[in-house]
Amino acid sequence: MSKSINIINSTVVPVNIENIDTDQIIPARFLKATSRDGFGKNLFRDWRFNNDDEQQPKEDFVMNNPAYKGKIMVAARNFGCGSSREHAAWAIKDAGFDVVVSSFFADIFRNNSLNNFLLPVQVSESFLAQLFEAVARDPETAIEVNLEQQTITIVATGAQESFEINSYKKTCLLNGYDDIDYLLSMRNEIEAFETARP
């Protein structure tokens, strides 16, 4: 897992479907693994293949269209809803993505992504529509996501929007820190809290 994120400039893979749940991102039958690795090959498994067969790709699914590739996934609203499985974030990251853009993320998925240095970028419905249009017109459309500046830009047109991220998480992502390091540094404070409880 690549730690720390700042500027990502890439073409995108557009998945223009609403309410994508984590069962679609990584179906339950792949959750029997006991490591975090190798989930990328089963990302959107049942949308990519007929009959669970890699020899039978579904032609109409975007990930089977070689025109679309890159480190940024763009998806319609309410992305990552449903099951809390972190395997969904692992699968997306393992498949080579560093950013997911949507107009709306499910809460648990957002946390899981941030914990895996996969940046969820929430944009307005209108900017999302612009992104989908630009990419449909030209699959080579490059997008730049700048975490430091908190901006997302369609490079060719200069169309830009800023996105929110709390300053603590931003610092973590920019520097490759994770929450567990922070919490471990609080050991004494946590123990004092426990002792003081009624």
């Binding site: 809390s84 972190e86 914990n115 567990i180 471990l184 946590i190």
Partner: peptide, 15 residues
Amino acid sequence: GIGTSEVEMVMATQC
């Protein structure tokens, strides 16, 4: 509900 990284956090720190 929480993700697995958070499960690890709670195991390690109860927070």
